[in-house]
């Protein structure tokens, strides 16, 4: 995973709330077998509108997305994150995020930044008034700074450490393989396996 320490860039102001993952990447583009290429279809259907923020030349090259509350709600599709990173975004700022999206972002080096709506509105105004305004998102001291203002954002310490170092979760967990095996030895024997067998009793009663 690409580590995230600090990032300075221009912003794309997305003045919308409840941006669900179906809008971020419509389901019909979910059939790619690898993570590459999803950026092409980021906000695919909204990009029909020439005034949509990602179509506006003054916001070209922006790599920090600033959105309204409840960004990334809905489906678990990690391609919502891959489409944002594929486009070039490194961070998304919003007052609240969908739970699964938030976790997926952290696992792909896309920093989800929770700031209250007041701060988001300041960033929207800055980016709209002067699209060249640069914002700095600093994970080391958990701050967002732009236009002479600065805000602190919350993030779990485990998440922060993994993101700063770009650590692979699976490697971290496999250090505990012996503990996992000990746990497995204590699992209750009545728990099911998925091994296929007789399908008698499948139909409802």
């Amino acid at each position: 995973m690409q580590p995230f320490t600090a990032h300075t860039a221009t912003m794309a102001p997305l003045r919308r709330s409840n941006v669900d993952t179906d809008q971020i990447i419509p389901v019909r583009f979910l059939t790619r077998p690898t993570v590459e290429g999803y950026g092409e279809n980021l906000f695919n259907d909204w990009r029909d509108d020439p005034d949509f923020v990602l179509n506006r030349p003054e916001h070209a090259g922006a790599t920090v997305l600033v959105a309204g509350t409840d960004f990334g709600t809905g489906s678990s599709r990690e391609s919502a994150v891959w489409s944002l990173t594929g486009w070039g975004f490194r961070a998304v700022v919003a007052p609240r995020f969908g739970d699964i999206f938030y976790g997926n972002a952290l696992k792909n080096g896309l920093l989800p930044v929770r700031l209250d709506l007041g701060a988001v509105e300041v960033l929207w105004d800055l980016a709209e008034r002067d699209p060249a305004t640069r914002v700095t998102v600093d994970l080391q001291d958990r701050t967002v700074s732009a236009g002479g203002r600065s805000w602190t954002f919350p993030i779990g310490e485990d998440d922060r450490r993994r993101l700063l170092l770009g650590l692979d979760d699976v490697d971290l967990t496999l250090r505990h393989l012996a503990a996992i095996e000990r746990f497995e030895a204590t699992r209750r024997e009545g728990l099911p396996t998925t091994t296929r067998g007789d399908l008698g009793g499948l139909l409802a009663r």
Partner: peptide, 10 residues
């Protein structure tokens, strides 16, 4: 609960 693709791999 639902998980993402990286978590599926995990």
């Amino acid at each position: 609960f639902g998980i993402g693709t990286t978590q599926v791999e995990h």
